[in-house]
């Protein structure tokens, strides 16, 4: 009994210290210790991460598997890049049509002030150093931070689509919350039918909810960021519609979205440092 009591006192003392750390962190006074800790751990973590990928690669390269894998990878990359070009061209075409409509709309409604948003700059590539250490959050850490202008809220992408947004950053590191996290909500639009909705993370994938019942959404349609709310720039690829669930009694449809990115294989990402709103005058000829 005395032993339990002594353990309980130790627990209380440690919980008090934990509370102190939490209070300091809430007041943003833990940045330096965190930077120091990250700087200590990151080199070893980066080395181990590279080693893991190399060893993982070695296991799959036994015998002829390597050649087939390379060939398959080259073809997949070719297909992905063509798919990406196709998506971008279709999006540009749709955007062109929309801007024409917008100009006509503006001429008919001179009292409206309209603005069109566009991505104008992208950041430098960052290497993914480590994955999330718990089962409660879906995130990765990257080796670019405040010194490169990486700040919380910025969008993180790869050539294949949206990865997530920066949650926290320090000197030489940043934590990126993946779009598959439970807390992730993105206003999105289906490229083909322009149906809107909200893409939510489900840990194992993505679901697009609140799609109006009358909108037409089909498997293999591409889902893009809508750019509403200013959290993400518009037009970033989120994923592809896998299946759609409709019901006569529900005013909304739901679609299961297959991300275009394999989040477990992330190596390098881009951080969008800024995207500026282009005024309507700049768009007009």
């Amino acid at each position: 009994m005395i032993r339990v009591r002594s353990h309980f006192i130790i627990l209380l003392a440690m919980l008090f210290f934990a509370l102190l750390l939490i209070v300091l962190d809430q007041g943003a006074r833990m940045e330096r210790p965190q930077d120091f800790g990250q700087r200590l751990v990151m080199p070893a973590e980066f080395g181990l991460s590279t080693l893991t990928r190399t060893i993982g690669g070695l296991f799959t390269s036994i015998g002829d598997i390597g050649r087939l894998r390379d060939e398959n990878e080259a073809l997949r990359q070719q297909l992905d890049s063509l798919a990406l070009v196709h998506v971008q061209l279709t999006e540009l075409q749709t955007e062109n049509e929309r801007l024409r409509d917008l100009l006509g709309f503006q001429e008919g409604h001179p009292n409206y002030t309209l603005e069109v948003a566009e991505i104008i700059s992208q950041g430098s590539p960052a290497a993914v150093v480590g994955q999330e250490v718990s089962n409660l959050v879906q995130s990765v850490r990257i080796n670019q931070g405040k010194e490169s202008g990486v700040e919380p809220g910025m969008s993180v992408i790869t050539a294949y689509g949206l990865v997530g947004r920066v949650l926290e950053s320090g000197q030489g590191w940043a934590k990126v919350l993946l779009i598959t996290d439970d807390t992730s909500r993105i206003t999105a639009v289906v490229q083909q039918g322009r149906a809107g909705g909200v893409v939510e993370g489900t840990r194992q994938g993505l679901v697009m909810r609140y799609i109006p019942h009358e909108e037409r959404v089909e498997p293999n349609d591409v889902v893009l960021t809508a750019g509403l709310g200013g959290q993400f720039p518009k037009g970033l690829v989120i994923g592809v519609v896998e299946s759609v669930e409709r019901s006569d009694i529900n005013p909304w449809q739901e679609a299961v979205i297959r991300p275009t990115i394999d989040f477990s294989q992330l190596e390098y990402v881009f951080v969008i440092r800024s995207f500026t709103q282009v005024s309507e005058e700049e768009v007009a000829p």
């Binding site: 962190d25 959050v137 919350l177």
Partner: peptide, 28 residues
């Protein structure tokens, strides 16, 4: 249990350092 608590303290700090969850989550 005393050693367990000591290890939990440092282990929790390390998890919090590398996790995106708020600081203190895994420590507690």
């Amino acid at each position: 249990g005393r050693e367990g608590l000591l290890w939990a303290f440092f282990g929790g700090l390390l998890l919090d350092l590398l996790s995106s969850a708020p600081l203190g989550t895994f420590l507690v």
